[in-house]
């Protein structure tokens, strides 16, 4: 029983393959993440699943239907939060919800009562008759999410739901999404924030250049592609590379970035002791748990946030 199944999914724009043969499945009630850097093809994949972009080749089933043939049916069971808010700026906050509900052909009375519930849910009840442009970025995002819920969707597509929000606004949003997840809504989200993926996703795929690099739960990915801990040492921009040459053999693996050197080891403190034992004096050092960021670095050789 799957709610989404993609097999060899491809989307080309002229010569560019935005999505280049992606396969995955999502089960109902699951929280599934697409993790990847800018231009990886996350939004393009989301738009094909949302039945607003036709695929070039491959197979895709959403709710058991082909999006190219059954766009309206599929979209009527989805809630979509696009990467960039596309609220209707000619309408007021509550009107946005009601009008959007009408697009699904829902009766006016039902939509009106749901709109009020959702305004509560999104903590926007006191802004019901404000103009959209008067809202802050975080409020707009919450309104967009509320709008996506107007048709009581089986599945929510969230394209970078919290990009550009301050930490507090992000936590409020995560809390709302977590509640939806508890109620059994399937979540499909893209992000390039590791903490977000770790907070919200049961399972995720790492994508780059339109391809899937790895798949699993956050914990299993870290286990498989990284060590338990990471030691980050800085020697100053000019010296990192040279120092790295003298670090060989410490820990399982080294990663040299322009501004720092990462030493992957099961015990970070022990690795640091070894570093100083070799006569190296890092300007700063930090021991932390491995994160999806490290998985990503390992898989693509690039940092996730450029």
């Amino acid at each position: 029983m799957t709610i989404i199944s993609a097999t060899g999914l491809v989307k080309r724009y002229g010569e560019v393959a935005a999505v280049d043969g992606v396969s995955f499945e999502v089960a109902p009630g699951e929280s599934f993440g697409l993790l990847g850097p800018n231009g990886a093809g996350k939004s393009t994949t989301m738009r094909m699943i949302g039945a607003v972009s036709t695929r070039t080749s491959g197979e895709l089933r959403v709710l058991g239907l082909d999006p190219d043939q059954h766009g309206p049916e599929i979209r009527s069971r989805l809630g979509v939060v696009p990467q960039q808010d596309n609220l209707d700026t000619e309408l007021r906050v509550r009107e946005n919800l009601i009008t959007y509900g009408r697009y699904f052909g829902l009766p006016r009375r039902l939509v009106a009562s749901r709109a009020d519930e959702l305004l509560e849910f999104a903590q926007l009840a006191d802004r019901a008759s404000a103009k959209v442009d008067e809202l802050s970025g975080g409020m707009k995002r919450r309104l967009t999410i509320a709008r996506a819920l107007i048709n009581d969707p089986r599945m929510l597509l969230l394209d970078e739901p919290t990009t550009g929000l301050d930490p507090q606004a992000r936590h409020i949003l995560w809390d709302r999404l977590f509640r939806l997840k508890e109620q059994g809504t399937t979540l499909l989200l893209t992000t390039h924030y590791m903490d977000e993926a770790e907070q919200l996703c049961d399972r995720l795929v790492v994508v780059d250049h339109g391809r899937i690099m790895a798949e699993g739960t956050p914990a299993s990915l870290i286990r498989e592609y990284s060590t338990r801990e990471v030691l980050e040492v800085r020697f100053g921009s000019e010296h990192n590379a040279v120092a790295a040459g003298r670090l060989a053999g410490i820990g399982d693996r080294l990663e040299v970035l322009p501004d720092r050197v990462l030493v992957y080891a099961s015990d970070g403190e022990a690795a640091l002791v070894e570093v100083t034992a070799r006569g190296l004096q890092p300007l700063t050092s930090l021991v932390r748990r491995s994160s999806l960021e490290d998985v990503f670095l390992r898989l693509t050789g690039r940092s996730l946030i450029e």
């Binding site: 309206p72 049916e73 989805l78 696009p82 960039q84 596309n86 209707d88 959007y100 697009y103 048709n151």
Partner: peptide
């Protein structure tokens, strides 16, 4: 504008 984008994410065709 992004108006149509929003409309087309619903069951509207």
């Amino acid at each position: 504008g992004k108006l149509y984008q929003g409309m087309l994410a619903t069951s509207l065709g």
